[in-house]
Design a protein around this nucleic acid. Structure first.
Lengths: 162, 162
DNA sequence: GTGCAACTTGAAGTCGACTTCAAGTCAAGC
DNA sequence: GCTTGACTTGAAGTCGACTTCAAGTTGCAC
């Protein structure tokens, strides 16, 4: 089980195995999300571990991160070899926290909607969904935290029949 | 409590109360997401119920819908008056299902990651995160369902120590 | 050693979701 | 009735995340 040339992937192979276009991979490389060594003829050769990084990038985008944010997150991992168990765990755990936050946000949104369904949502003065936005405006121009918890006030009371 | 001119909002008022820029609201109107009547002098006047629609649009974007998708969803609501309880409920419930799907997807992603942390994730042949992507590639070029359940196979087994 | 698919680069194009600009019109308080 | 801030339009600009293009180079199977 020596280290043969199968340990390095051409950009075409990486594209095929990751499901991404080669143009996207070149773009990711330019952004510093992935790294490639070069052959003497200047062609890219990717380490196999790049597949994991790419999977990570796609997953992160799914959760709503920009590529810039992903880059920051991935900076904790070595760019040219497989990460150690420890390195990977650190990133994975941070990552789980991010997912948890996202889930919490969605659940908050859902709860608000549940309140709207059950209660007099049609009354504009009581609809939590509506009010969430309306209060956002009070916070000043450009306030755009949407249905997120209002940073300026404690946890929101659930909307209820009254 | 008669119907006075306070029942209509100028674009500036709508912007202030929704937290969006007037340019965004004009853009939404162009896309058919919201509707405005016009004064004799051609200025927009929005019904108060537009605030709810706008809140909805922002919430939908948060969950990852494009404005085009939002438009389709909102087409079930009347554009120029407050929706009836029934109309609103129908949309809200469909909406909750969408949120549930999104949450389920995130939880799947998290479970995969949990497996990665506990197990030999560094083995490329066993990492669920990695394999999810890799299998996507097998499905043909352009397959991009990311960490979603593979449509071609049943529910995925959880990654485990073995 | 040659042929051809796969690679290289930089520049330009695209798409969604807006924002900014310019030049002009409206509404309402004094 | 005038002033001034809020409004109107269409066109162009921006940003992130890519894709497409053109023109040239490399790697490898035969």
């Amino acid at each position: 089980m020596g280290i043969g040339r199968h340990d390095l992937l051409t950009i075409g192979q990486l594209a095929e195995r990751s499901g991404l276009a080669t143009s996207a991979l070149r773009y990711y490389e330019k952004l510093g999300l992935i790294h490639a060594d070069r052959t003497t003829g200047n062609q890219r050769r990717f380490a196999r571990s790049t597949l994991r990084r790419v999977a990570f990038v796609r997953a992160a985008q799914q959760v709503g991160l920009s590529l810039e944010e992903v880059r920051t997150a991935l900076d904790r991992l070595p760019h040219d070899r497989a990460p150690s168990h420890q390195e990977w765990n650190a990133v994975a755990i941070a990552w789980q926290r991010r997912i948890d936050r996202q889930i919490a946000e969605l659940e908050l949104m859902k709860r608000k909607l549940t309140g709207c369904i059950g209660c007099g949502c049609l009354s504009l003065t009581r609809c939590a969904l509506y009010n969430a936005e309306d209060r956002a405006a009070q916070a000043g121009p450009g306030a755009r935290y949407l249905l997120t918890r209002d940073p300026a006030s404690g946890p929101e009371p659930l909307p209820s029949a009254e």
